[in-house]
């Protein structure tokens, strides 16, 4: 589906949106009837229906255009950005991130890497490169679009987060420690909600990230278009939102700690499939 973005009705995004709203309205109505018998089944059905016309396609198309556009003080595109498989390679890179990058001597996820490329190649300041990293209703995010585009070029590929050098191993160890680290006025850690199978917060099912299969299902499913938020959200945002719920302070962007958690989770997810961009509640 991702390849046909430009061939579809994308010339007129509004037209596409109107159609989408019709699908959502229908799906909600249908979902409601089913919900009385089984809410979760209803949600799954509604998700499936929407998957046929995931609005993330709009983000993907915008991301592709942004990636190719000459921008910033240096008037350069991101086409020479090395996302791990060499400058200019986009296909398959997302399935192998986070990874170690020699030029910065750091393990970076796709978002941290894009920030580096925007600074180094395009000449943006760090503040400019990280501005609007999470969109607000009146403020779209270039980062969300770029990440959607890059992730979509790994759709269907096997997750293969490398753990081959010392920094990657260190990031894994840090991520594992942070996963179990309890703090804050609610005494929560990631493990509080994500180390048992079949649990929920309200009606939201929670993945057990200590199990390979559940980590595989989740890790490859971000970024995702979130219906409740009307935008695509990235993995950094998912973690930011978890820390918000955990009553921690606001986590910085992009944070090495979050990347370390991604390495820990991604490593468990190796062998799974990249399904992103998906559609979520």
């Amino acid at each position: 589906m991702s390849i046909c973005v430009r061939n579809r009705r994308m010339v007129d995004p509004m037209h596409s949106r109107v159609e989408l709203f019709a699908v959502i309205a229908f799906a909600l109505a249908a979902g409601h009837a089913v919900a009385q018998a089984n809410t979760e089944e209803g949600i799954a059905q509604y998700r499936q229906m929407l998957q046929e016309g995931n609005p993330a396609e709009l983000w993907e198309a915008r991301g592709e255009a942004l990636f190719q556009q000459k921008r910033g003080p240096k008037q350069a595109s991101l086409e020479q950005c090395d996302l791990g498989l060499g400058p200019g390679v986009v296909k398959g890179v997302y399935a192998q991130l986070p990874r170690y990058f020699k030029d910065v001597n750091q393990v970076q996820d796709v978002e941290a890497r894009l920030v580096t490329c925007m600074v180094k190649l395009q000449g943006f300041s760090l503040d400019q490169a990280t501005a609007n990293h999470f969109s607000k209703p009146d403020q779209p995010s270039d980062m969300e679009a770029l990440v959607t585009y890059i992730a979509a070029q790994s759709k269907g590929m096997k997750i293969n987060v490398p753990l081959s050098n010392a920094r990657e191993k260190e990031a894994y160890g840090i991520g594992e420690r942070l996963f179990y680290r309890r703090a804050g006025p609610h005494d929560f850690s990631c493990a509080t909600c994500h180390s048992e199978s079949g649990k929920r917060i309200r009606l939201q099912e929670l993945p057990n990230l200590t199990l390979t299969q559940e980590a595989q299902n989740i890790y490859g499913s971000w970024p995702a278009y979130r219906v409740s938020q009307g935008t695509v959200r990235t993995m950094q945002h998912r973690m930011y939102d978890c820390y918000w719920q955990m009553r921690h302070p606001q986590v910085d962007y992009p944070a090495e700690a979050v990347t370390a958690l991604e390495v820990f989770m991604g490593r468990s997810a190796n062998g799974g499939e990249v399904t992103a961009p998906t559609l979520k509640r």
């Binding site: 840090i174 942070l178 302070p249 606001q250 910085d252 944070a255 700690a257």
Partner: peptide, 8 residues
Amino acid sequence: VFNEAFAK
């Protein structure tokens, strides 16, 4: 790393 993550 965790301490640095909440600097801002």
